[in-house]
């Protein structure tokens, strides 16, 4: 399956005089895991926020699931919003609700499903992301950073989305927790047939999960391709990124690309 599920054309984002993106083009294919990398401040998170409608771009078009999300009316936009899930960097759980209520909230607000089903489905999501069953009754402030991320993922999966946006899913996790999270994302992506848009700094995550990588630099998507292709790119920043000391440590041994 190679039809684009997200199409971005000519995207320009400005904050005052600072231009973050200039004429950015990007396609995300159905069923793939796309990793977006770039230096700090290169606008990775801004790109994610722009696609999901939290940041209005100065110019450009964004087409998600066949809907132009910048010009769509409320009903169409709502329809698209029901088909994507977003996980923010620190989970962004609603602090006044328990974990279970957090996970059930999208089902309650967007689809109006009855309480019992909601509860059962929320418990299922909580189990699927690898949280213990007892976590459902806890409030977000009682959770550790890693558990908050998992709970955030459970909430993002709440409406059975087709596209999953992940903002730095493994940042701040210990290496074991991070590789568990990578495995979790891969397993869920396979089982649910998700398209995943992943913003990350973590080379291990790129190796473990991503089908394709997009490098953000010089205010646009500089290059996209598989990990093997990235290793052959000559652009200085890309080269330094994928051939630096950390990159060598992260590469799977014995020709694992």
């Amino acid at each position: 399956m190679t039809d684009p599920i997200i199409t971005i054309r000519g995207l320009t984002n400005r904050f005052g005089k600072t231009v973050v993106h200039q004429g950015l083009d990007l396609d995300v294919m159905r069923g793939e895991v796309l990793g977006v990398v770039g230096a700090s401040g290169s606008g990775k998170s801004v790109l994610l926020r722009t696609i999901v409608g939290l940041q209005h771009p100065a110019e450009g078009t964004i087409d998600v699931l066949g809907t132009d999300v910048l010009t769509a009316d409320a009903a169409h936009l709502r329809n698209v919003q029901n088909r994507w899930g977003v996980m923010f960097q620190d989970g962004a759980l609603f602090s006044s609700l328990t974990v279970r209520e957090n996970v059930a909230a999208p089902m309650r607000e967007r689809l109006g499903i009855d309480a019992e089903t909601r509860r059962a489905l929320a418990d299922l999501r909580i189990a699927m992301v690898g949280l213990p069953a007892s976590a459902g009754d806890l409030s977000p402030s009682d959770l550790s950073g890693g558990m908050r991320k998992r709970a955030g993922l459970a909430r993002a999966l709440s409406l059975d989305p087709e596209i999953l946006f992940l903002d730095e899913p493994t940042a701040g996790l210990d290496p074991i927790g991070a590789s568990e999270f990578d495995a979790l994302i891969t397993a869920l992506q396979k089982a649910l047939g998700l398209t995943v848009f992943l913003v990350t700094h973590d080379l291990d995550t790129l190796h473990a999960t991503c089908d394709r990588i997009a490098v953000l630099a010089e205010k646009k998507v500089l290059v996209t391709g598989t990990m093997a292709e990235m290793l052959r790119v000559d652009q200085p920043w890309v080269h330094a990124y994928f051939h630096g000391p950390r990159a060598h440590a992260a590469q799977p041994p014995a020709g694992g690309n």
Binding site: D123, L124, A127, M128, A133, S134, D137, A187, A191, G193
Partner: peptide
């Protein structure tokens, strides 16, 4: 195949989701 994988994933998750007695 995809549906079988999904059913297996959900069955597995459900087994661990047995709620602790409240």
């Amino acid at each position: 195949a995809a549906q079988t994988l999904l059913l297996e994933t959900v069955t597995e998750a459900l087994a661990s989701a047995v709620p602790a007695p409240k």
